[in-house]
Simulated assay, not measured.
Amino acid sequence: MSSATSDPLSALVALPGVPDAVDAVRKAVDRVYGHRVMRRRSNEVTSEAALRGARASAALAGADWSLEEVRRRTDFGGEGEPRAVGAALRLTAEAGQLLSVWRQSPLRVLARLHLVAAGDGMPGRADEGGTDRVGRPRLAGEGVTEPLIELPAPDADEVAGRLDGLARLLLAGTEAPALVVAAVVHGELLALRPFGSHNGLVARAAERIVLVGGGLDPKSICPAEVGWSEQGRASYVGALEGYVSGTPEGVAGWIAQCGRSVELGVRETTAVCEALQRGAA
């Protein structure tokens, strides 16, 4: 059996531009981890990165609040934008608690993430829009309510098959860098939209879990969500369309865009470190 067959995720590293993206991200992450502030105040940096990442993920879901507004607000129980921001904050807090479970059962983690995103939704209760039941992939005939992503959603049978295939790949292990694995997880979840709602928020939380669990960003201080938001929704959707196309160029472009998002997250955290060092944050 060839290595490409036994480890298809690792094979993606050979795509044009991917090695450069992996190398650039590794160097950027190493630089911010070497910042002197990280020696004594890493917990503060992690907390701030989490907040900024959640704010950015909510912005991509249609709730583009300022960082000051997110800090100020305490009530996220309403519908619309407050609910999206609350979901993003809950997911960011939850993601760090699910690393060990992810290694054993990625599908259980995805179900948990969707349940957390839905907030006050209870199993057996129709979630926002009445299109799904929280904590499990949609069934035949159930629709998808998803801001930003307008690509045709695969049917329930395809979703089930591809989710199972993704889980098998992850559980089998891979030599692929964490960036590549995170990009595939993120891209598959956006392409499939397995739940009736909150798929973007869940996909970005899963990307965070892989980046942390894969050892690229063990302290979770490099919020890729910030980078995705900074590059803009049109860029995000365009890169996803490339991934969904399945062409080598499209998949490579998506991985590179994931790398750029992490780099921009590093830049954000570097600014946080500099502010902490000056006593301005």
Rank of each mutant, 00 (worst) to 15 (best):
P16C: 04
P16S: 09
P16Q: 07
G17I: 07
G17K: 15
P19R: 05
P19H: 04
D20P: 07
A21D: 05
A21H: 05
A24R: 15
A24V: 08
V25Y: 13
R26C: 12
K27G: 08
K27P: 03
V29G: 01
V32M: 15
V32G: 06
G34M: 05
G34I: 09
G34P: 09
R36F: 09
V37Q: 06
V37S: 09
R39H: 09
R39L: 11
R39G: 08
S42Y: 05
V45L: 14
T46W: 13
S47E: 14
S47R: 15
A49I: 03
A49R: 02
A50Y: 01
A50S: 13
L51T: 05
R52A: 14
G53S: 09
A54G: 09
A54C: 11
A56R: 07
S57K: 01
S57W: 03
S57R: 04
A58G: 03
A59P: 00
A59E: 05
L60M: 14
L60A: 00
A61N: 01
G62F: 02
A63K: 02
A63T: 05
D64L: 10
D64W: 03
D64V: 02
W65R: 07
W65F: 15
S66K: 10
E68D: 10
E69I: 08
V70R: 03
R72S: 11
R73L: 03
T74I: 08
T74C: 04
F76A: 06
F76K: 01
G78V: 11
G78F: 00
E79N: 00
G80Q: 09
G80N: 10
E81Y: 02
P82E: 09
R83V: 06
G86W: 05
G86R: 00
A87H: 12
A88C: 13
A88V: 10
T92K: 10
A93P: 05
A95H: 08
G96I: 01
G96L: 07
Q97P: 03
Q97Y: 02
L98C: 04
L99Q: 14
L99E: 13
S100H: 08
S100L: 10
W102I: 02
W102F: 11
R103V: 00
R103T: 06
Q104N: 11
S105K: 05
S105I: 06
L107M: 12
L107W: 05
R108T: 15
L110C: 07
R112G: 01
L115T: 13
V116P: 04
A118K: 00
A118P: 01
A118L: 01
G119S: 07
G119N: 09
D120H: 14
D120Y: 09
P123I: 11
R125D: 15
R125F: 13
R125H: 12
D127V: 12
D127F: 07
E128W: 02
T131M: 10
T131Q: 11
T131D: 12
D132R: 06
D132S: 08
D132K: 03
